[in-house]
Design a protein around this nucleic acid. Structure first.
Lengths: 246, 246
DNA sequence: CATAAAGTATCACGTTACGTTAGAGTCAAA
DNA sequence: TTTGACTCTAACGTAACGTGATACTTTATG
């Protein structure tokens, strides 16, 4: 299928398909000698996933990460889609209820507080991002794991020891406030060590801390060094990332 | 209520509130001497409307037009909100069904065509725009009516006569194809006459033609000159607006 | 086969709706 | 009084296309 056919079938623009190709989000399986994009059935299946995540409010960059994640599984994604759609339907029922209450309020039949006006309406940041991260991990983490996998045994051992040392140090500091000098010094070491493996911006670093508590696998692993360490690190990493810029 | 309180209550950013004030979409009822915005309960009610239309995919510019339309009525808007929410809920049920079918397809239990993958998903342009236009009219039309109302009686009479003449001419041409030379010449006159009253871009002109058939009031009025004239004009105006640019 | 219209490509500026950062002023609580 | 939170304006940046232009390709028809 060429661009117009796909665009018409799906209800998006040709420009959108061009754009998705450009950014590597949906690359057609084939391109003719004259440069025409040919989309396969597989491309269409992927497009469905893309459009669904987009509908849920995910930025394209994030969608790309998700569907290209090693652990991404189409079947699992569809299960999530179904769950979320059901959740949204329930939310819609709540919204209908709120609007109905507002109508009654306008007719003077009931009282209504300002808070009630917005019940069921959720304008905050994409609430489904957490869900996706839990299922498909974080690309930065995945890349780090990849880098470590490609290290020599000696290098791996050296890093493992550094990891161990820092975890132990942090475990011994976890009774301190996350923003204390000692905690922050240890976190700085942690930040620098991670940046030896793979580039982490402060923002990524902070998000990683959040993953430590959100993802049971990380929490379990880290809390071996001391109960509550994952939570402590999460907070300390946020402080570190949020410190005033120099 | 000041910006942070409103932002936290509703789940939007302070920046958004600033932006809405800047573009005149939501202007706080009060501003302190130090320049602080103070939002009233009435402002919150308007914000609810704004956020709802925004959730439905309306551009802010359009939302502004709607809520500032002379015929905008909050009660009516809430009724529409309720209708649309119910529609969306039904659509969600369809989407759930489609996803479930996709899951079965993936498990090899059923066959599925490409078209079926996207059933219930609607990625086209805002489908609720028509609904809103029907209820709250078109700002350009409203402004034209306003201009005419402020004309002297002589001017009004002169324009009425010009309107009449063009309608009659077009009525006599409606058996021709909308893109015929004669039809297009008459439509050009119509375009120029309207632009004497109020500025119409080609895009607006085309949208106005659509209003002639969508809005019963216009259809009735125009079809007095000849059955099907509104439809004919709609098509001819679209041709005129879409003609190659010179 | 020739032609015209529809389809397709790339390029690049424009649009919309904020997000983000910076620097300065204001408010409220301790 | 001090400090931290809040608020303001200004302005650049970002994401995701929309739009218009120009040139090449494909398809259907006479």
């Amino acid at each position: 299928m060429r661009v117009k056919e796909v665009a018409d079938l799906v209800g998006i623009s040709v420009r959108t398909l061009h754009h998705y190709d450009e950014i590597g989000l949906l690359v057609p399986d084939q391109v003719t000698e004259s440069g025409y994009r040919i989309y396969s059935d597989e491309n269409l299946a992927t497009l469905q996933q893309i459009l669904f995540f987009k509908e849920l409010g995910f930025p394209l960059k994030k969608i790309k990460e998700i569907i290209q994640s090693p652990s991404f599984d189409q079947y699992e994604a569809l299960q999530l889609h179904r769950e979320i759609l059901i959740k949204k339907r329930d939310q819609l029922n709540q919204m209908i209820h709120t609007v109905e209450k507002t109508i009654l309020h306008l007719k003077g039949e009931i009282e209504m507080a300002n808070e009630e006006r917005f019940e069921g309406f959720d304008f905050r940041k994409n609430p489904y991002e957490e869900e996706a991260r839990k299922r498909w991990g974080d690309q930065t983490v995945d890349r780090s794991n990849e880098v470590i996998r490609n290290m020599s045994k000696e290098e791996q051992k050296a890093f493992a020891q550094s990891f161990d040392a820092i975890y132990r140090n942090l475990a011994s500091l976890r009774h301190l406030p996350p923003d204390s000098e000692k905690a922050q010094a240890a976190i700085k070491e942690w930040y620098e060590l991670l940046n030896k493996i793979n580039y982490y911006s402060l923002e990524m670093f902070k998000a990683l801390g959040q993953i430590y508590v959100d993802d049971q696998r990380f929490t379990k692993n880290i809390d071996q060094y001391g109960e509550g360490l994952a939570q402590f690190m999460c907070e300390a990493m946020a402080v570190f990332a949020d410190q005033p810029k120099k």
